[in-house]
Amino acid sequence: MRRALTEPPLVRGALLAVALVFLAIFLVMPLVAVFAQALEKGFGAYLTALREPDAWAAIRLTLLTAAITVPLNLVFGLAASWAIAKFEFPGKGTLLTLIDLPFAVSPVISGMIFVLLFGRQGLLGPFLGAHDVKVIFAFPGIVLATVFVTFPFVARELIPVMQALGNEEEEAARVLGAGGWQIFFRVTLPNVKWGVLYGVILCNARAMGEFGAVSVVSGHIRGLTNTIPLHVEILYNEYNFQAAFAVASLLAFLALVTLVVKSLIEWRARSVASREEHVREAA
């Protein structure tokens, strides 16, 4: 939507300048600084820092955590948004609030919850100890904390989309003889696929970048329970700035990719919408 501007050029220029300076100081400069620091000692040193066994272990752990977390939250998000958008049931408001819980709680608290539940002194600690299952300070704990912190992303993205779509297409499919899975895969999923993709991307970015909750449950064991963000912190605390920024650049790169994909999706959604509008106007 384009509106006629009424403000004098001076005001316009000042507003624009403020916004740009702000953007430069808080977004562009840090991003540039990360890559500059990472490549400070040349590309060779950059690669060496990434190839270092502990760094490599952190990368693998992060990827593995995301690989488990994202599908889980995808399934949960689809189920929750489907239930909330398509059915009326008691407790719907409560469920909606609960989905938002991870957004409302500090990640550190989220981590603490899992320590309280699964830690040695925790609620399930004796039981887990007796069966020799290690959750806290181990891989399962990291996955649990990450799942908890990232579970609203897909659901939150899909609920409004599904609500806007309504039930009619599913009903039409049912009358035409389609079964539940057929309806889901042939009608519902194709209609929400961009929302799903968007949610997955945000969920993934958070899963890989989560620090607080994971920090509490991981125990910071080098080469074993350090994810990328934790590893960056350790390197930084050891004054190994170049290596810290080299590893951090991976996360920065992930952020850039996320932004690009996100804008692609939005651009596509907009172009589809505007095309439909054109057709409607023509008709």
Binding site: E168, E169, E171, A173, R174, V175, G177, G179, R186, V187
Partner: peptide, 16 residues
């Protein structure tokens, strides 16, 4: 409804 063999035309068409 799947097996009733009815044709149903929805008010807003509900096309896929």
């Amino acid at each position: 409804v799947r097996h009733r063999r009815v044709g149903f035309v929805f008010q807003h068409y509900a096309l896929f």
